[in-house]
C-alpha cells in the first residue's frame, strides 16, 4: 500500500504529511501532526469530539480522509486561541465551569466558534440544536449552553 503525500494548511501553518489512503483526517491530525486536541469518541460521526473546520465548514474529522484535504484550510482547537489570547468561547467555558472531564470540550469549542461566526446572536434553542452532535456526558449541557450564549453576548459587545 503506497502512502499519499498531502500539502495543506493547519491552523494557519503550511504542513505536509504522508498518509494511508484509508486514514482519516482525525488520525492524521493526531498521529502524524501530533495535534491531539481533536478526540476520537466514536469514529462514526456520532459524538462530535473530533470537530474541526475544513475550509471554514464545521466537520467531523473522523468522517474526512486525510487524502481529501490537499490544499485546504483546517482549524483545530489548537488554532482557536492561545493561553494569553483565548477565544471568548474558551474563556466563557472556563468562567462558567462548563467542563468537567473536558474530553468533549475541544469539539464544543470548535463547533461553538463556527456557530457564532455565522450567527452572532443565536437563541438558546439554536445553540442546543447546533451542538446536538457534540455529546457531553458530564455536564447535562446547562453550563455549556450558558457559556456559549454569554460568549456570543460578549462578542456582540454586550455585557463585556
Amino acid at each position: 500500500m503506497s502512502k499519499i503525500h498531502i500539502t495543506t494548511q493547519v491552523n494557519g501553518d503550511a504542513v505536509e504529511f504522508l498518509c494511508e489512503p484509508d486514514e482519516t483526517l482525525l488520525d492524521v491530525l493526531r498521529d502524524r501532526l501530533n495535534l491531539t486536541g481533536a478526540k476520537e469518541g466514536c469514529g462514526t460521526g456520532d459524538c462530535g469530539a473530533c470537530s474541526v473546520t475544513l475550509n471554514g465548514r464545521l466537520v467531523a474529522s473522523c468522517l474526512v480522509l486525510g487524502a481529501e484535504v490537499a490544499g485546504s484550510e483546517i482549524e483545530t482547537v489548537e488554532g482557536v486561541g492561545t493561553a494569553d489570547a483565548l477565544h471568548p468561547v474558551q474563556q466563557h467555558l472556563l468562567d462558567h465551569a462548563a467542563l468537567q472531564c473536558g474530553i468533549c470540550t475541544p469539539g464544543i469549542i470548535v463547533a461553538a466558534k463556527a456557530l457564532l461566526l455565522q450567527n452572532p446572536n443565536p437563541s438558546e434553542e439554536e445553540v442546543r440544536y447546533w451542538l446536538a452532535g457534540n455529546l457531553c456526558r458530564c455536564t447535562g449541557y446547562d453550563k455549556i449552553i450558558r457559556a456559549v450564549l454569554s460568549a456570543a453576548a460578549e462578542m456582540r459587545g454586550e455585557n463585556a
Binding site: 489548537e78 482557536v80 470540550t105
Partner: peptide
C-alpha cells in the same frame, strides 16, 4: 467561591493529555 480550575486552560486549548493522546 468559583475560581477557574487549574487544569482549565489545558482543557480549552487542546493541550490536556487523555488516555489515547500519548505516544
Amino acid at each position: 467561591t468559583r475560581p477557574i480550575r487549574p487544569d482549565g486552560l489545558d482543557k480549552v486549548t487542546g493541550k490536556a493529555m487523555f488516555g489515547s493522546d500519548k505516544s
